[in-house]
C-alpha cells in the first residue's frame, strides 16, 4: 500500500467522521425557510369563530404576526398561553396585528379549542391547507412575522416558548414596530 493510498484512506475516513459528528447536532426535520426576505403571500379566508371573510389586505402596512395552528397539535397547546400573552403585550400598538391560521382542522373542533384555551386575536380557516402551502408550512405550529412593507422577516418552526418568546418579542417585533428598515435576527438564531 503506497503512502498516497494510506493518506487518501485516512482523509476520507476523517472527512466522514467529521461529517457524521456535525450531522448529529443538526435537526433532520428542519427545512430552511426560503420565504424569509420575500414578499408575503396574500392570505384570505373565513374567520374560524364567526365565519366572516378575512383578508390580509385589511392589515396592509402593519406588522403582522401569523401563527399556524391546529386543534390536534400538541405543541400548539404548549404555546397557546404565550400567544395570548404576546397579543396582550402588543395589542395596543396601532401597527400590530396578529392572526392565527387554523390548519388541517375541522371547524367545530377548532372552535371548541379556542373556547377551551382562550381566544383574543382573530383566526382564519385554512381547511384545504392552501394558505399553509403558500407559506411553505410543513407542520404546526409555525410562526411568521411580516413587516410593514409586506415582507416576511422571520419564521419560527415549533412552539413559541421560553427563549423563543423573548427573541420574538424583543429582537423581532419590537424593532420592526419601531422602525421599518430594522435588521432583525435571522430566523434560526434564537438566543
Amino acid at each position: 500500500m503506497t503512502r498516497t493510498t494510506q493518506i487518501t484512506i485516512l482523509v476520507v475516513l476523517f472527512a466522514l467522521l467529521s461529517l457524521f459528528y456535525q450531522g448529529l447536532w443538526g435537526d433532520p426535520r428542519h427545512i430552511p425557510p426560503v420565504l424569509v426576505g420575500t414578499r408575503a403571500p396574500v392570505f384570505e379566508g373565513p374567520d374560524v369563530e364567526s365565519g366572516e371573510p378575512m383578508s390580509s389586505e385589511q392589515y396592509k402596512g402593519k406588522v403582522i404576526l401569523v401563527n399556524f395552528w391546529a386543534s390536534w397539535c400538541q405543541e400548539c397547546k404548549v404555546e397557546h398561553e404565550n400567544l395570548l400573552r404576546l397579543y396582550d403585550e402588543f395589542k395596543d400598538h396601532p401597527e400590530f396585528v396578529m392572526v392565527g391560521i387554523n390548519y388541517q382542522d375541522e371547524i367545530p373542533k377548532a372552535r371548541a379549542y379556542l373556547q377551551r384555551y382562550g381566544s383574543s386575536f382573530p383566526h382564519m380557516q385554512d381547511v384545504k391547507g392552501a394558505l399553509a402551502i403558500d407559506f411553505g408550512v410543513y407542520g404546526v405550529p409555525e410562526t411568521f412575522v411580516i413587516d410593514k412593507q409586506g415582507v416576511i422577516r422571520h419564521k419560527w418552526i415549533g412552539p413559541i416558548v421560553d427563549n423563543v418568546y423573548t427573541n420574538l418579542t424583543k429582537n423581532v417585533l419590537t424593532p420592526l414596530l419601531q422602525r421599518a428598515d430594522t435588521q432583525v435576527r435571522p430566523y434560526d438564531q434564537a438566543p
Partner: peptide, 8 residues
C-alpha cells in the same frame, strides 16, 4: 399534507 399538495 401530501393530499393537500396534490389538491394544490
Amino acid at each position: 399534507l401530501a393530499h393537500q399538495m396534490r389538491e394544490a
